[in-house]
Amino acid sequence: MRTRFRPDHRLTTRMVVTMFLLGLVYVAFIAALVVLLDSVIMVVVIAGLFLGAQYWFSDRIALYAMQARIVTPEEAPELHGIVDRLCATADMPKPRVAVADTDLPNAFATGRSTRRAVLCVTTGLQRRLDTEELEGVLAHELSHVAHRDVVVMTIASFFGVLAGLVARFSFYSTMFGGGGRRGRDGDNTFLLILLVMAVSAAVYAISFLLIRALSRYRELAADRAGAMLTGRPSALASALTKVSGEIQRMPTRDLRAAEAFNAFFFAPALGSRISLSSLLSTHPTLEQRLDQLATLSTQL
């Protein structure tokens, strides 16, 4: 699909490199499993079913989990008006528009294709941002749709899901399958399962780090593309500052409930406390994002 979002060759390169590295890890992983196990068909089939469900029903799953609903132009005229203007400017199909009734100020885009895309905004975000700031956030999310970020991240996450399933399968085999065995055969089986668990854990860790690195870069790319589309980087910077500040003041309980959507959110549901989870976040730091937008403002 051709749109007026500028082609981001750096983002494309990072996506290709990440997928290539994940592919190498996956090939090595499968080769190790073939050597270590008699059959991995069941694990691969289960992982494939998970991937298929995530790919085909990602929009429905996300809307259901966020308790969001599709809204018509009559129900949300201002929101639809902004999306209409941005899609006309970007020369791209208009996604469906949804609203989640939650105080958490955020937005996300999902869907397996530009035709099946859904742009979801929370009521908390709408209450806190003015029109220009909301336009900057929606332009950011439309960039994700135009660059097919959701599809790429879904496919990339398949390798991590597969490794995680194998690790769990091996763990349960150790707990329930080999506990009663005695002798050399039992010891060999136990060691084999432990080795499979170690390989699976290593694959999962590598996949996790690669996907998180790609995720942080795609957020910077979406900030850049959204700011260029609206021509107002300062409005997006203002929205980022407001949203991040409001999120840090929210109860930890509410943030934990939304953590599963951090990879898709405009801003991650993280508190102000610096931790390992924030260092390995799906998003770059607020300072990085604001610095990039300040540079864009100077250039424009």
Rank of each mutant, 00 (worst) to 15 (best):
V40L: 15
L119T: 02
N106V: 12
Y55I: 03
S272D: 10
F265C: 06
H80M: 09
G271E: 15
I61L: 14
R184E: 12
M175G: 00
E135A: 15
E287Q: 11
I206K: 03
V151F: 10
R85Y: 00
V40G: 14
R256N: 08
V34F: 06
A269Y: 01
A117Q: 05
R85H: 03
R69G: 06
T72S: 15
L220F: 02
T282H: 11
T131M: 12
V151A: 13
A201K: 10
L37E: 09
A269I: 00
S58P: 06
R182W: 13
R148P: 01
L210C: 13
A98D: 11
V118I: 04
L129N: 01
R182I: 12
L300S: 09
T110H: 08
V71F: 14
F5Q: 00
I211M: 12
R2W: 07
S281F: 09
P233T: 11
A269E: 00
A98Q: 11
A88T: 15
S297E: 08
F158A: 13
R128C: 04
S113D: 11
V151E: 07
A90G: 10
V150K: 00
R10Y: 08
R60W: 05
G164W: 01
F266R: 01
I193A: 06
D38P: 11
A258K: 10
G160L: 01
S244H: 03
A163Y: 02
S275G: 15
H147R: 11
A32V: 03
L280G: 13
H80I: 09
E259I: 03
V145C: 03
L138V: 06
L236E: 01
L293I: 09
G160M: 03
T18N: 10
S244C: 00
M1V: 10
A235H: 02
T18E: 05
P93I: 13
N188T: 12
G52K: 14
E141M: 08
R249Q: 07
F190A: 07
A117W: 01
D130N: 12
A100V: 08
E74I: 10
A260G: 06
A267F: 04
D84V: 04
T252Y: 03
F159W: 07
V203A: 15
L220M: 09
S277N: 06
E287G: 07
T3D: 01
T174C: 14
H9C: 08
M15Y: 06
S170Y: 01
P284K: 05
V27N: 06
K94D: 03
T123K: 03
A98N: 09
I41Y: 13
L286E: 07
V17C: 09
T3V: 04
R96S: 15
L119K: 02
A227M: 13
E287N: 09
A257F: 09
F5W: 00
V203K: 05
T131G: 09
S157R: 12
E287M: 08
Q288F: 05
V121Q: 01
T102F: 01
A65N: 05
L296R: 04
V25G: 14
A225M: 13
